[in-house]
Design a protein around this nucleic acid. Structure first.
Lengths: 220, 220
DNA sequence: CGTAATGTTGACAAGGGTCAAGCTTAGTGG
DNA sequence: CCACTAAGCTTGACCCTTGTCAACATTACG
């Protein structure tokens, strides 16, 4: 167990030789650096605001939410991360955010080296994260509830390989806190999309995007 | 004139030997790379969405807004940039955003080299931009109008050296599009802060933060 | 099968958007 | 130097979207 994460609530070191992984590991970086797979149970903390940032993290399986809190408990999720995606970017050496496993998740930690050698590998990932976050800003700052939910569904679909039927690993609270809406508004918007025939709710966590074009044109 | 920007509306190459600059130039990077100061008149475009991204930009004087548009004209400003600050980060080699001069601005362009050598210099800047954007997401996603405006004022103050009296280079429309509010709401919030004695409006562009603590505690 | 967590729906309220009018300021030309 | 104009800003009235509160339904789990 890395000293870094020793105090976390029950992340377990994975059994040796977990076998084949389909996830593309950060190339080069991976080989050179100390890195190991850790398991986090649902809703456990991966890192917290104010902690020293000592690693980048890649999701191997499961899903992760990264968020920030206001003092009264209001929460803004800045991003969800699923298999293959990298999170944990921070400036000035400290975490400004919290990261938690949404469901049971396997996360590979890449301990940060003195930086210069691997910067060219990390930079493109950081830039992609920046562009994504700025685009999310447009959604939250300028789009209404229906447009936000549509954007979310389309984004989730694309990140799950483009299949029309998608699995939402997160619950309504998470979706609300990601989109800057309440759970009630999220729920009502789902219902309206269902009535309009835009989606089919197989169950509360499984959505089929029936009229993808309609959803797409909602986000513009 | 760099070929890159030749088609822009009237950016002029600065007269040679503009004299002393107080702005810290990107170290190392600066020396090695082709870089030059360009002047952009108020409201002129620095780059546009979809263009090839060939440079990073540092503001020498004046101010810049970076934003994105929805097809119906709604606009979200992702950031303002003033003297010394760097903008123009993009993924995959193309601009996903627009950049414009807010007022007459001097901008130094650092043409991008094949990347590996200077990545370790750019990375910290990109990471800082990422954290800033994620924090802005919290403001827009989870704070009400008064909290957003308070956060904006405090941020502007800190970026202008901490003096209690600040100059807003941008107009209400820009502030609204930055905070995800209408100009009317921005204006009303300013008025309420004035009535509450939190601020003094020397004129519409000059604000004295009288009760800084009150403003600070609004953002939490 | 019972309980708790999660999700849905309805009624109502409020924050902020929209529309419209008036005010202020800066720039321009007589 | 002043009047005119246009752009920017402020304020008011009204309305709509979304939040709040509450009840109920559904699902997951022991």
């Amino acid at each position: 167990m890395s000293a870094t994460l020793a105090h976390r609530p029950s992340p377990q070191k994975s059994p040796a030789g977990t076998g084949s992984r389909a996830i593309p590991i950060l190339p080069g970086f991976a080989a050179a650096q100390q890195q190991q797979l850790m398991l986090f149970p649902a809703n456990s903390e991966i890192y917290g605001q104010g902690e020293k940032a000592v690693a980048l993290y890649q999701v191997e399986f499961g899903a992760v939410r990264v968020f920030r809190l206001l003092s009264d408990g209001r929460r803004q999720i800045s991003g969800f991360y699923v298999a293959g995606e990298v999170f944990g970017f921070e400036a000035d050496g400290y975490h400004h955010f919290f990261a938690e496993a949404i469901c049971s998740a396997g996360v590979r930690a890449y301990r940060l080296p003195p930086s210069v050698e691997v910067a060219h590998e990390i930079l493109p990932l950081a830039l992609q994260a920046l562009v994504r976050t700025q685009e999310h800003l447009l959604v939250i700052g300028r789009q209404n509830a229906a447009e936000r939910v549509a954007a979310f569904l389309v984004d989730m679909m694309e990140r799950q390989g483009g299949l029309r039927q998608i699995e939402l690993v997160m619950q309504r609270t998470d979706i609300g806190d990601y989109l800057g809406l309440t759970i009630e508004t999220v729920s009502r918007t789902f219902s309206r999309f269902k009535e309009a025939g835009y989606i089919r709710l197989v169950n509360s966590r499984t959505v089929e995007l029936v009229k993808l074009d309609a959803l797409r044109s909602l986000c513009e």
